[in-house]
Design a binder for these strands. Structure first.
Length: 465
RNA sequence: GGUGGCGUGGCCGAGAGGCGAGGCAACGGCCUGCAAAGCCGUGUACGCGGGUUCAAAUCCCGCCGCCACCUCCA
């Protein structure tokens, strides 16, 4: 059974055939660190984290590159607005992105290269492009000559002639054609710069990805990912830069859909962002991951509090099964393999929604086994459920979530447990003498402080509500 | 003007010619002192109008509504 992926370049689902057997090279356009991450950014991180986990589960050795663009027009203008050095702003935002990725359980990529760390590679690329007649220097800038590259527009299925020309094109600049894009920008006064054969300047927006993808993954690599809004111009331009130099570049292009707010795309420029940091204070991060990771990566998510609350309930159903199953059958490791049906879904263009349906069916089967006192059946389902959650990065009993319960918290929980047991013993005594008013009073007082008491055949159990 | 996407039950959200993914909510039942949780059951949904077909949410044609990209964007 092979993995199939939707490839934007061909607008079709294709069998995934890696360049090197057993290995996958994956490049994801990460953050332009001009501002703190909103939940749309982190959705991309979660989607591709699940992809890389699934590839790893299928036995591939994944080299995962996710870049950080730490210099561009926006970074410079925001830094100038705030009156700080660009690197101060970039670094602060990069830390915020890292906290968001870590917080939502995204495993770190193999490498996170920064644009400013790869200036020599960019200069070399530009020299090569100029030598080959695909780029030209003019007025301190370096431009890519779009007309010199016949494949331009193939990814986004546009013909150059049909495009609107850039109405923000600077009349002063020296472009030969309005569609030409800037590889390198001559530094204006006060801007940071690097010396080059064309004078002092700094990178445009697209060049860094071509340079860094080649450096870490080679002239040809398997998958290039990013948000759907990067198809044009960013990825189109990357293709132009890299292929014009002679690289084969990416074999598959994967794009995640965005998160919308009131039916509009969430974006920094529209100012309708929901910041990850704020959300993590209001919802448990594992629930946010479930919410952002469960819909198909190519479907847009219309953000709503109600849907997020619902995700929290759905996820806690899974967690409660884990808790009760552990109580009955004891600690159980994840199964070695996920159920076939689950695997078939993820093989089919990462169909997480279908896979989650299988997960819920296993939870139900597990609950049925628990209700019947079928320990063997419950243990088997518990192993399956943990294996599936593991692939999705949502197993509360595995890293990084299990580490969240640190030792202080565990000690405190033990103390609270002992206190609650005292109250529950009194309640059991009241129930034994059929004084239900007293028993219910104890239960409701505990409920008032957030402790939910449930009676089970094995005695009362409590959880934080 | 060019390019791409979306419209599914009360809600979220999959699917892509035939058997109603899954979750949330609701209702009935089992269990319970009562609850909670859990389990069992209950639904005749696919924007509108045509067409193809034995069979259409799915394919074709035409509409309607919404969104995005066309050099800032995950």
């Amino acid at each position: 059974m092979s993995i199939r992926l939707y490839d934007t370049a061909t607008r079709s689902v294709r069998d995934f055939v890696p360049i090197r057997p057993g290995k996958v090279s994956l490049y994801l356009c990460g953050a332009t660190v001009q501002a703190a991450p909103h939940i749309g950014h982190i959705r991309s991180g979660v989607n591709f984290d699940i992809l890389s986990r699934w590839l790893a589960y299928r036995g591939f050795e994944v080299t995962f590159v996710r870049n950080v663009t730490d210099i561009d027009d926006k970074v410079l203008s925001k830094a100038a607005e705030q009156g700080v050095e660009f690197w101060r702003l970039a670094q602060a935002n990069e830390r915020a992105f890292t906290a968001a990725y870590d917080g939502l359980g995204c495993r770190p990529p193999t490498i996170e290269p920064r644009a400013t760390g790869h200036i020599p590679e960019m200069v070399e690329l530009m020299q090569d492009l100029i030598y080959r007649g695909h780029a030209y220097a003019a007025g301190g800038d370096v431009y890519f000559d779009v007309r010199s590259f016949p494949g331009y527009g193939a990814l986004s299925n546009q013909r150059v002639a049909d495009m609107w020309s850039a109405d923000d094109a600077d009349p002063k600049n020296a472009k030969r054609d309005p569609q030409d894009f800037t590889l390198w920008k001559g530094a204006k006064s006060g801007e940071p710069y690097w010396n080059t054969p064309w004078g002092p300047g700094r990178p445009g927006w697209h060049l860094e990805c071509s340079a860094m993808a080649r450096k870490y993954l080679g002239e040809r690599f398997d998958i290039h990912g990013g948000g759907i809004d990067l198809i044009f111009p960013h990825h189109e331009n990357e293709i132009a830069q890299s292929k014009a130099r002679g690289d084969a570049f990416a074999q598959y292009w994967m794009h995640n859909a965005w998160v919308t707010m009131a039916n509009e795309k969430m974006s920094k420029s529209l100012g309708n962002s929901v910041l990850v940091a704020d959300m993590m204070r209001r919802y448990r991060p594992i629930v946010l991951r479930y919410y952002l990771g469960t819909p198909h990566y190519r479907s847009m998510i219309e953000y709503s509090e109600a849907a997020l609350e619902e995700a929290a309930v759905a996820f806690s159903r899974i967690e409660q099964f884990l808790t009760r199953a552990f109580e009955l059958v004891g600690a159980t490791e994840p199964a070695v393999a996920v159920p076939d049906e689950f695997a078939a879904c993820l093989d089919d263009d990462l169909a997480v929604p279908g896979a989650v349906a299988v997960l819920h069916q296993s939870v139900r089967a597990g609950n049925t086994a628990l209700a019947a006192g079928d320990k063997e059946g419950a243990k088997a389902r518990l192993g399956d459920v943990r294996a599936m959650l593991g692939v999705l990065g949502m197993d509360p009993l595995a890293e990084p979530w299990s580490a969240a319960a640190d030792r202080d918290a565990a000690n405190l929980r033990e103390v609270v447990d002992n206190l609650v047991v005292v109250a529950l013993e009194q309640r059991q005594a009241a129930r034994a003498r059929k004084d239900y008013a007293a028993a219910d009073e104890i239960r409701s007082r505990l409920a008032a402080i957030g402790i939910v008491v449930e009676d089970t055949p094995g005695g009362p159990r409590w959880t934080l509500g």
